[in-house]
Amino acid sequence: MKVSLFATCLTNAFYPEVDLTMAKILKHLGHTVDVPEGQVCCGQIAFNSGYVDDAREVARTLINSFERSEVVVGPSGSCIAMIHHYYPTLFENEPVYLKKAEDLIHKSYEFTQFVVDVLKKPDLGAHYKAKATYHPSCHATRLLGIGEAPLKLLQHVNGLELLPLPEAQLCCGFGGTFSVKMPKISEAMVAEKAEHVLASGADILLGLDMGCLMNISGYLEKINKPVKTMHIIQLLGEGMKS
C-alpha cells in the first residue's frame, strides 16, 4: 500500500522524531511511504477558537495536499478527529470541497487505528522492558471512537507492563488554545492528571497525541517528577530496534 503521512503541525515543529518513526514503522511493514508537500495543519487551533474562516483555509491547504493520496495516516487522534468530525461542517457551503473533504475522511486514519484495524498488525515484534501507563486522549476516544487499538499494540510489546491509569477518562487540560486562554483552569486539570499518573506507579506515560503528552510532560517536568512521556509510536520504534 502507498501510505501518505500527515505530519501534524505539532510533531513537525517539536517532535519530528515521531513522524520519522511512524514512517519507519510503516516502511518496515512493507508499505511505500510518502509525505505530500504543502501539508501543514488540520486547522483545529483556529476552528476550536471560533476562527472558522481562518480554519477553513488551513483545512483547504491540507485537503489539497492529500488529494492524490491513497491512504493518509497521522500520529494524532485529535487532528484526525478534526478532519472526520468537523470538515463536513467547515465546507457545508462549498460542494466541491465538501466532496474532497469526504474523500479525505474516508481515507484518513490515526496511526494505531490504521495499524491494528486496517493493516491487522497488532504485533510489531517490539521489546521494551518498562512499567507504563496509557492516557486515552479525549478526541481519539470520544470523537474517533478509538478504544482498543492502542492497547492491542501495547499488549504485544514484549516486556512492557501496562498499569491502569486512575480516572483515565479525565481530560489532561490541554485543549489546544484552552491551555493558554484559561491557563489556571488548565493547570488545575493537568495537576490532577499528573497526580493520577504518579499514582499509577508507571515510569512511562504513553499516549497517541503529542498535544496531551506535551502538556502532561511539561507539567511533570516543572514539578520535577521523573516520569517519562512517550508517544506509542516512539515506544514501538525503540522496541523494534532491538
Binding site: 517532535y15 509525505v35 488548565s186 511539561g218 507539567y219
Partner: peptide
C-alpha cells in the same frame, strides 16, 4: 505572552532544529 501563560506552570519542548518536513 501568550506563551508565558503556558510556561508559568509547564515547560515546553524546544522547537526542533529542523522541522520534519525539512528532514524528510
Amino acid at each position: 505572552p501568550p506563551l508565558s501563560n503556558w510556561t508559568k506552570s509547564r515547560t515546553l519542548p524546544m522547537v526542533a532544529p529542523k522541522p520534519f518536513m525539512q528532514i524528510w
